[in-house]
Amino acid sequence: MAAPLPATDLAPGFAEPVRQSQQAFRAALNALSYPGRVVTVPGCVAAPPLGPAQAALALTLVDFETPVWLDHAAAGAAAWLRFHCGCPIVETPSAARFAFVVAPEAMPPLAAFDAGSDEFPDRSATLVLSVRSLSGAGDLRLTGPGIPGEAGLGAEGLPPDFPAQWQHNRELFPRGVDLFLTEGDRLAGLPRTVRMRS
């Protein structure tokens, strides 16, 4: 499709933005605070190619202050994001504050995204990935803050060398990117503090 979609053809955003964004935020907060747990986001909206949980996080966290990067498979969401979130869409991963990735297997390495600085490690990217399947029991063994003992996480559709990439990201601490893995209306959080072995 050559011409940009007129606004009226776009998928809608939240019908009740105040309530729905609060619920989505709490889901994200819980997911990031208890890594490895799969949390359902209530009241998601559909905005393909973004998955429902991805779309909910975008509506909840993204605005004109946060440049967004989209992978090739997510590019179709640009007009929807611009309209509902008012965010700039950037071409280079390192310029983004948020990245929405629909085909993670082919995504650039985590190191391509902004990891913040030692003095301002909070100025780093948050990546929201859509994976094929997500479960709270799986081969990825997680330890770190938010996890009593050890947690398991199953995620299909990540790059094959993801554990090694994550290990590198972990070593940058306090710098580093933070991840949300989503499948449908469910999500799991991977803050940079998590140690992972597979």
Binding site: F25, L29, L32, S33, T60, E65, T66, D122, D178, P191
Partner: peptide
């Protein structure tokens, strides 16, 4: 939104 973004980064660090 701005505060929520900050809270998530705070939890991550």
């Amino acid at each position: 939104r701005m505060i929520r973004r900050t809270i998530l980064k705070a939890v991550a660090i």
